[in-house]
Write a protein that binds this DNA or RNA. Sequence first.
DNA 1: CTGCCTTCCAACTAAGCGGTTGGGATAAGT
DNA 2: ACTTATCCCAACCGCTTAGTTGGAAGGCAG
Lengths: 196, 196
Amino acid sequence: MAYAPEETRRRLLAAAVDEFSAAGLAGARVDRIARAAGVNKERIYAYFGDKEGLFGAALESELLAVIHAVPIRGEGVDAVLRYAEAVFDYHAAHPQLSRLLAWEGLERDAPVAFEARSAAHARKIAQIRSVLPALDEPAAAELLLTIVTLADGWQVFRSVDRLYVGDAADRPERVAVRRDFVVGAVRALVERLVAT
Amino acid sequence: MAYAPEETRRRLLAAAVDEFSAAGLAGARVDRIARAAGVNKERIYAYFGDKEGLFGAALESELLAVIHAVPIRGEGVDAVLRYAEAVFDYHAAHPQLSRLLAWEGLERDAPVAFEARSAAHARKIAQIRSVLPALDEPAAAELLLTIVTLADGWQVFRSVDRLYVGDAADRPERVAVRRDFVVGAVRALVERLVAT
DNA sequence: CTGCCTTCCAACTAAGCGGTTGGGATAAGT
DNA sequence: ACTTATCCCAACCGCTTAGTTGGAAGGCAG
C-alpha cells in the first residue's frame, strides 16, 4: 500500500468529529476513532499530540466549515434575519458542531483556537453593523450571541424540547416550527434594537 | 458513630451534583463523589443503583429546587419578563443546573424523570397562558423554551461569550449586561406575540 | 442479653483507558 | 544500489475505572 499521510489525517479528523460530537472529550475513545478511520491509533499521537489536541483540531475544522457556509448577505433587517435562518438551518443540519461547541464550553477552560476565532467573530460583528448601521458594537455582539445561542441551544437541550413535543422532537416538521419561531424572535429583537 | 442513612444519601447527592455538573456523566468519577461526600462508594450503588442512576437523581433534585425557587407571579407582559429575569438570575447563580441539563441532552437518549417533568412543564405553560391569555399553547411552549435556552445556553456556550468579552466573561458586570439584553429580547418577543 | 436486620467500609477485581515502543515497509535523495 | 527519513502498525504498559464482596458495627424487637 502506498503512503497517504494527508488522507490519513483527513480520515482521523472526520472520525474524530463524529466521535467527539457524540461522546464528548471525556466520553470519546481514542481506539474507536482510530478504528472508525481505519488507521492505527499511534497516528493520532503523531499528528495531533494527544486526545485534547485531536479534539481541538476537530472543532477547529468544523468551525472553519461553518464560517464559509454561512455568510451575511444583503442589507437591513432582512439580511440579519436571513443570516439567523441560515445559522439555525446549518446547525440543525450539522448538529455535530453545536455539540462540539457545548462540550468545549463544558469540558475545557479556554476556547479552542482563540486568536483566529475572536478575529472571525469580530469580523462577523462588523458585518452585522455594516448591514444595520443603527447598532453599536455591544448590541451587535449580543445579537450575534443570541442568534448562536438559540440555534445551538436547541441542539443541546433536546431533552427540554422533548418535554413538550415528545418523540416528535426528532421529526422534520419540528425543525421548521422551531426555526420559524426563532427567526420571529430575532425579528422582534432586531426591530426593537434598530428602533431605539 | 451513629447511623444516618438519610444524611448519607443527602451528602452523596450534593457531592454528585458538584461532580456531575463539573465533569459530566462520562467525566465524573464515582470515587471522587464518595470521597467528597465522606462516604464509602459502595453506598452509591446501594442507594442509586449505578453511576447513571446517581446522575439522574442529582439532576432531578436540582430540577425540583428550581421549580420551587422560580415561580410565575403577577399579570401581563411584566409577569413574564420578571419570570425570564428570575430564570436567568437563577441559572447564573446556579450554573450547575444549566450544565447538568446540557449534559443530559448530550450524553443521554431520554430525559430524566420524564413523567414528572413534562407534567411540571405543562403547568408552567398553563401559567404563562393564564398570565398572557393572548398566547395559544404552542406559542407559550416555544416562548418558555426560548427563555430557558437563552438562560442556560449562556452558561454552556461560555467559550463563545469569551470570544467577544475575553476574560471579562467571568466578571459580575457581564452577568448584568447579558441579563438585561436577554430580558430585552424576551420583551420584544412577547410584545410581538401578544400583538398579533 | 440475644438474635436479626440495616448501615457502613476496606479491600478487591476485571476490564478498559490513554499513551508508548520497536520494528517493518515505503518513498526519496545521492 | 545504498542511505536516510517518513509513514505505519501490532503489541505492549502502567494506571484508572465502575462495580463487588465479606464482614464489622450500630440499631432495634423480643
